[in-house]
């Protein structure tokens, strides 16, 4: 009963529980939290406690003594460490209700990968309930992404969404508020970073960290050949000499490094198009497919997919927050129509 009462003073939330970042959307306020899904755990005499969460925890990475470890509790879009995820969510929910003097108990909609198993979905649901939510609903990420991108999901028209997140890439064909076909491949921004790290080790004989790989990807990463060649100066530990060395990388090298993960995404998109019913395929061929998620910010990725599939490809507005915004909009639709089945919400 008190949970319900506390719920009156809490805001409805939509959470995009991503491998790399967690975003929270609050109704009528928009995106209120966008922090890395990282938790720093302090181990004092085998008694573990949370030292920092989110951006503070990410800042600590690589700069802490032995008794603090930074953990990413989500892997491939699903929970890898249940308790740490719960603590992280608890912290985030409390953070978005900072002004409230009452312990929050919001209604929460969580976006889950479309090919997550029942066990993984149950883990997410229970984790959110333990973090203090009074009611938890789950929505598939591509559906939320499509709503967030402003696509006409309720119409009898086929739309294809490719959501490239940190851990997974979700591809879905949506029509009439439902997912007609969905596929998920475990390739995303993290795999891009790994590919860059491996490439630098192979060609420069130097070891770089995850953060550096991510910076290289964001600053000069490219998915399709382009006239403009970008360069970046990087420092890494030389494997032969054991000392830090500085070297320069250009966008063409990164393009070569990213070939393997990009080809997996291209193959998955082609596979999804093969499986799409002909009527919907013709709709998609006319209007094109939409890219969402942080991975779609990789330069020229839309051109790569357009050339590989022969279809128009566009990047959604503000692709990073599409899923969280779509989840929030789904909550509003659910309230307005009082029908949670409408958007295949569980």
């Amino acid at each position: 009963m008190f949970k319900k009462l506390r719920g009156i003073f809490s805001n409805d939330l939509s959470i995009d529980l991503g491998t790399a970042n967690t975003l929270i959307y609050v109704r009528e306020k928009g995106i209120v939290l966008n922090e890395p899904s990282v938790v720093a755990i302090r181990n004092n005499n085998n008694q573990k406690s949370v030292a920092a969460v989110g951006i503070d925890a990410k800042r600590m990475l690589g700069r802490t003594p032995g008794n603090i470890t930074a953990i990413r509790p989500l892997r491939d879009g699903v929970i890898a460490d249940f308790q740490v995820t719960e603590k992280m969510l608890q912290h985030f929910i409390k953070k978005v209700h900072e002004n409230s003097f009452i312990r929050p108990s919001p209604r929460v909609l969580v976006c889950v990968p479309c090919q997550s198993t029942e066990v993984e979905r149950r883990a997410i649901r229970e984790s959110v309930v333990s973090a203090g939510a009074r009611d938890v609903r789950l929505i598939e990420e591509p559906m939320a992404a499509a709503i967030g991108a402003g696509l006409p999901v309720h119409e009898a028209v086929g739309t294809m969404v490719v959501d490239i997140g940190g851990g997974t890439t979700e591809i879905a064909v949506i029509s009439l508020n439902g997912v007609v076909y969905a596929q998920s491949v475990r390739v995303g921004g993290d795999r891009f970073d790994e590919a860059i790290t491996a490439y630098v080790r192979r060609t420069q004989g130097s070891l770089i960290g995850d953060a550096t790989a991510e910076r290289i990807k964001q600053e000069i990463g490219m998915a399709f050949p382009c006239n403009e060649v970008l360069e970046i100066d990087v420092r890494g530990r030389n494997l032969a000499e054991g000392v830090p060395r500085s070297f320069t990388l250009n966008s063409n090298e990164i393009l070569e490094a990213l070939q393997e993960p990009l080809s997996v995404i291209v193959q998955a998109v082609k596979g999804a198009l093969e499986q799409t019913p002909p009527e919907l395929a013709s709709d998609i061929a006319e209007s094109g497919l939409v890219l969402t998620g942080g991975g779609s910010l990789l330069r020229e990725l839309d051109r790569l997919l357009a050339h590989e599939t022969g279809l128009p490809v566009i990047v959604a507005e503000d692709p990073l927050t599409c899923v969280a915004r779509g989840g929030g909009r789904a909550l509003e639709i659910m309230d307005d129509r009082g029908d949670s089945d409408l958007l295949s919400i569980q």
């Binding site: 991108a149 402003g150 696509l151 006409p152 028209v157 739309t159 006319e286 209007s287 094109g288 939409v290 839309d302 357009a306 022969g310 279809l311 128009p312 490809v313 566009i314 990047v315 959604a316 507005e317």
Partner: peptide
């Protein structure tokens, strides 16, 4: 990879004739 008619609608400023308004910003960007 768009149809010529879409480009014609954009050039003439007849955005309402493009079937899915959600895609217009994407087309304009590309």
């Amino acid at each position: 990879f768009l149809t010529t008619s879409f480009i014609k609608y954009i050039d003439d400023g007849e955005f309402e004739k493009i079937p899915k308004p959600a895609f217009i910003k994407g087309y304009l960007r590309t």
